[in-house]
C-alpha cells in the first residue's frame, strides 16, 4: 500500500508538466496528403527554368512557401529551417525549394534572399518564383490572406514534403524542431512508419519515441513502468531471501 502512495505522489508531481497543445495545426497538416503537387513552371535563381516535376524527379523536395517583403514569420522561419538542416549538410536525399507566393517578388528579390541567408552556394537549397502561384498554393492546401491595410499576407509557416513521384507525403506548419524535419525527410523518401502521434497528447509516460534519423524507437518513461514490476519482484525475492537467512542464523 505504501508503494501505492509513493507512486501517487510521484505522479501528481508530474502532473504539472503535462500540458495540452492545440490540435488545429495538426489538423491542417493532414490535408492534401498523397495528392499530386501542381506541376508549375519555375524560375530558379542561378539555374535554368524548369517545371516542378523535373525538379522533384531528381530529388524529393521540401517546399517552403514565403514572400520576401514579409515582416512577420518568413525570415525566422527560414533561419530556423537552415539551422535545423545544418547537420544534414551534403545530404542529397532532398532539396529545399524556397518559393515565393507573392506576385511582386522577382528573381532578384529571391537572389537577395538567398544571399542574406548565406545559402547562395548551397547545393541543397533552391530559390524560385512561378507564374502559377494560385494553382500551386491550391494544390498544397496553402491559403494566404492578403491584408491590404498592412500590405502583408497572413499565412502559415508551411513546409510541404514532396516525394520523387510528386506526391505530397507530409506537411509541417510552424517553426519545427529537428525531429519533425527528420520525419519529413523520411516521408519524402518513402520511409513508412506505421504510426504517429497526435500533437495534443500528453507524452510524459509514452513508451516509445520514434527517432526518424535511425528509424528506431527510443524507450520512453512508460517503458520503465513496464519493466518496474519485474525489477521490484526480483529485488523482493532477493531481499526476502537475505532476510530469512539472516533471521535463521
Amino acid at each position: 500500500m505504501f508503494k501505492n502512495i509513493v507512486l501517487l505522489l510521484l505522479i501528481f508531481g508530474f502532473c504539472n508538466f503535462a500540458d495540452a497543445q492545440t490540435t488545429s495545426t495538426a489538423l491542417k497538416e493532414e490535408t492534401n496528403i498523397y495528392e499530386r503537387v501542381y506541376d508549375a513552371p519555375l524560375q530558379v535563381v542561378g539555374q535554368e527554368s524548369a517545371t516542378f516535376d523535373e525538379l522533384y524527379a531528381q530529388r524529393p523536395v521540401i517546399l517552403a512557401l514565403i514572400f520576401t517583403r514579409c515582416t512577420g514569420i518568413c525570415n525566422p522561419f527560414l533561419v530556423k529551417l537552415k539551422e535545423s538542416l545544418q547537420f544534414k549538410d551534403g545530404d542529397d536525399s532532398f532539396r529545399v525549394m524556397v518559393l515565393s507566393f507573392d506576385p511582386r517578388d522577382n528573381l532578384s528579390d529571391m537572389h537577395r534572399l538567398a544571399q542574406n541567408l548565406g545559402l547562395e552556394e548551397n547545393e541543397q537549397w533552391a530559390f524560385a518564383i512561378t507564374d502559377s502561384i494560385s494553382e500551386l498554393t491550391q494544390s498544397v492546401g496553402f491559403d494566404p490572406v492578403w491584408d491590404s491595410a498592412r500590405r502583408q499576407f497572413d499565412h502559415d509557416a508551411l513546409l510541404v514534403g514532396i516525394n520523387r513521384e510528386g506526391y505530397i507525403t507530409k506537411k509541417l506548419i510552424g517553426l519545427r524542431e529537428r525531429g519533425d524535419l527528420d520525419l519529413l525527410t523520411g516521408s519524402i523518401n518513402n520511409v513508412f512508419v506505421p504510426t504517429y502521434r497526435l500533437q495534443n497528447q500528453n507524452m510524459l509516460f509514452s513508451c516509445f519515441n520514434y527517432d526518424p534519423v535511425t528509424g528506431k524507437n527510443k524507450p520512453g518513461l512508460g517503458l520503465i513502468f513496464l519493466a518496474l514490476p519485474a525489477v521490484l519482484t526480483a529485488s523482493l525475492l532477493i531481499s526476502i531471501s537475505i532476510l530469512v537467512r539472516r533471521s535463521r542464523r
Partner: peptide
C-alpha cells in the same frame, strides 16, 4: 495511474499505449 487521472480532474492524462 487510474487514481491519479481520476483525482486530477483532467490535469493529468495517461498514455493510452502504456
Amino acid at each position: 495511474l487510474y487514481f491519479a487521472e481520476y483525482f486530477s480532474k483532467g490535469n493529468f492524462v495517461n498514455d493510452a499505449l502504456l
